[in-house]
């Protein structure tokens, strides 16, 4: 029972929260922070074979101020760490972070003096993608996971 019964099929009722989250999850504007090898699979994912446009996230904004998903693609070392934090801080809310590949997630197999072992030591992360580098299908899977995550979010925290 709802307004549909009174006004016919030209109406739909929903929760405000649901609609806003629904709109957000299908219109990600992502900022690719591409550093290393994973960038190659990132390119593949964005090209026509795998076609990330099907999920509404095909349009990279190359300014963090216009983006709402930060893709951290590849290894982040100590020299780059301040740059990544600065990029993250420039993004406006709401924002999500996707850690692309083993290096961004945990430093990967670069356990040495130069590399930060996981970008979650620098910024908070929402979705981790395993793989070195992850295959495009894994990236799409992670994107769907992120969409589910966004759909579950509360507007008022």
């Amino acid at each position: 029972m709802g307004l549909e019964t009174i006004f016919g099929k030209s109406w739909a009722t929903s929760k405000m929260e649901y609609v806003i989250n629904w709109a957000r999850k299908f219109s990600f504007f992502d900022y690719p922070f591409v550093t290393a090898c994973c960038g190659m699979e990132f390119m593949s994912t964005f090209a026509s074979t795998y076609d990330i446009a099907r999920f509404g996230a095909e349009f990279p904004r190359f300014s963090p101020r216009q983006a709402d998903v930060l893709f951290v693609v590849g290894t982040v070392n100590q020299k780059l760490a301040p740059v990544l934090r600065m990029t993250y801080e420039q993004m406006v809310e709401p924002k999500w972070v996707l850690s692309f590949g083993a290096c961004a997630t945990s430093g990967g197999f670069y356990d040495n003096y130069a590399v930060v072992d996981g970008i979650d030591k620098i910024i908070p992360v929402d979705v981790y993608i395993p793989g070195c580098p992850p295959r495009p299908k894994a990236v799409l899977d992670a994107l769907i996971k992120l969409q589910e995550h966004v759909q579950r979010e509360k507007l008022i925290k």
């Binding site: 100590q78 760490a81 003096y113 130069a114």
Partner: peptide, 9 residues
Amino acid sequence: KRQPRINLR
């Protein structure tokens, strides 16, 4: 031996 440039979380 790491020498971080910024404070890590």
